[in-house]
Design a protein around this nucleic acid. Structure first.
Lengths: 336, 336
DNA sequence: TTGTATGCGTTATCAA
DNA sequence: TTGATAACGCATACAA
């Protein structure tokens, strides 16, 4: 391993000057600077991040805390999209990204705060963490800047980022209503998740605004799981054959619903219309192609990390950032 | 920040003993050990990774080098699967994972070797890097242990891991032949990629073994891209209407082919049968569901990192590790 | 413009 | 069983 000491020795100057030359300080003569840089290159010098991080007490790294990179959970591509956006942003500012997951935390019994401290990390982007996770609580109460994606919680030094879920789902249901549907059921996700609450609000808003009665029985929870949605949908349409449309709080659940509907010998959209949420890749390839609310997860990840860096640098940020969404009309809704 | 110094002061003992107590050394009395550990907990002590890494000259981190986390490139979920497997393995051995991509490398003009050195990283899992990437060359010639997924190159300290691509594609084409197809075209990926070469070999093997003439015109390259496959397939089936089956070197391309076939007013599998490769999530949801070669990317990532750790620890490893694959019969192939 | 000295938090060597 | 001390590679306050 080549160190600045080696360079100093070879160049016959002090380590200090080498350090400053390598960091392109203004108070080093152009001549020595050039000399040192060429020697460094020649010797294949690589700065040691650990040493830098240790002495500077910070590491130019953004943490991203996720519920987990699960074997099966990635089918919706959402986490991948976010990750991709975060890495892209980090690159633009010469930062690195450190990924930490709940599963890791549980296995190592290591908290998110601990992880960040260990690595001299300045702040974290958080997504998919359950609000009752004690480590999450700890994180919120810490000084660490946090950008929360799709979770609405207030912390000591946090901000939130998401689309306007109420508006988006309202729009989805209004679209169904515009297509003359009245008996519209909703397949929601985990009851406790903040986005579920928001999306349900939008569903109810749309119905009441059109004078349609909200029936509690038309509202079921499927945990954002395809399989659960499949089962719940089967029960639902058997029990309430008058239902002509389904609003699903995620595309994965919509895919389950679609399978259930087909399985009951019904056609989409002729018999039952379906609107999803997220616009995951699968939604475009399903038959029929799924009408859905489109979110840009890449951009979400990108923006989240951009916000985070601002917070780390003590620049002002908005407490709530709303990203754009749009209703993507495809083939799973019919006029009746 | 709480350091071992703080603990030492509070406990009235030396830093040395604190360090050893915290690392559970045998030569510390149970009493002091317990004392120190409780004080550490009480004070919220977190070891500083940078300091550890600096003094130990290693960081308990596995590098994973990918072509990139691209916005659109992740639709196939392959990279996600591998990542997921690697993180899962790393967790079991209490290692961390550092992700580095070509795009980052290009932007920062930083080589893979440099990245690893900077972070005191012991070795890397590599996937999706072009064999003519100069940084890849450098990596191969370095001492760093490397596990290459789906690339067949020899380096100073490397091993390869993949399924048996020749056998797998041979099996796929044999299946087509068993269904009485004779005019079988192949949509291959990038000509230069080693897996493409292997898969092509399998295709040719199967044909010749059955005494079917191999026609150069039946072999087209679509760069593993859905859109390119769409276009090439359209040309192909217009030019050679006698073709009754397509073997695609990836599911994403198969999806493009399917769209092209449908677009020409033909039916799958009645008019043309299609076999894909990879078994990505999309392949199960397409209509018709795609018959394909199934690979377990999660396991591939898991095994790759397991091999890597062995190499880092100077344990013996096989130069070539072949993982299992299987032909997944779904609905895109018909007997003629 | 350059150099000396110090310290970041941790582990390791050696002596007690 | 414990402690004093040096070392890892780097950046910086201060002196020259």
């Amino acid at each position: 391993m080549v160190t600045i000491k080696d360079i100093a020795k070879k160049a016959g100057i002090s380590v200090t000057t080498v350090s400053r030359a390598l960091n392109d300080y203004y108070d080093v003569s152009p001549t020595t600077k050039a000399l040192i840089q060429s020697i460094a290159k020649e010797m294949g010098y690589v700065p040691n991040r650990s040493a830098q991080s240790l002495v500077k007490q910070k590491s130019n790294t953004l943490a991203i805390i996720l519920s987990g990179l699960e074997k099966e959970g990635g089918k919706d591509n959402i986490v991948y999209g976010m990750l991709s956006g975060m890495y892209a942003f980090a690159e633009t500012v010469n930062y690195e990204v450190a990924l930490f997951t709940t599963s890791t935390a549980q296995q190592k019994k290591k908290s998110y705060v601990q992880f960040c401290k260990e690595h001299n990390i300045g702040g974290a982007v958080v997504n998919g963490i359950r609000t009752d996770d004690p480590f999450f609580e700890e994180l919120l109460h810490s000084d660490l800047p946090c950008v929360l994606i799709d979770v609405f919680m207030e912390g000591k030094n946090t901000c939130n980022i998401s689309i306007d879920n109420v508006k988006a789902s309202q729009q989805a249901v209004e679209y169904l209503i515009k297509n003359n549907h009245k008996n519209i059921a909703m397949i929601n996700g985990r009851k406790e998740a903040s986005v579920s609450v928001e999306r349900q609000k939008g569903y109810i808003n749309a119905l009441t605004a059109s004078g349609i009665e909200v029936k509690g029985d038309y509202l079921v929870y499927a945990d954002y799981l395809e399989e659960t949605a499949y089962e719940k949908t089967k029960e639902l349409i058997k029990k309430f054959p008058e239902i002509t449309a389904l609003f699903c709080a995620s595309d994965m659940m919509a895919l389950g619903s679609i399978r259930a509907i087909k399985n009951c010998g019904l056609c989409i959209p002729q018999d039952i219309s379906v609107v999803g949420f997220d616009n995951i890749p699968l939604s475009a390839y399903s038959t029929p192609a799924l009408t859905t609310i489109s979110q840009d997860f890449y951009f979400m990840g990108y923006e989240a990390s951009r916000q985070l860096l601002k917070m780390i640098n003590n620049e002002p940020v908005k407490k709530n950032v709303f990203l754009k969404h749009k209703l993507l009309e495809r083939d799973s809704v019919a006029m009746i």
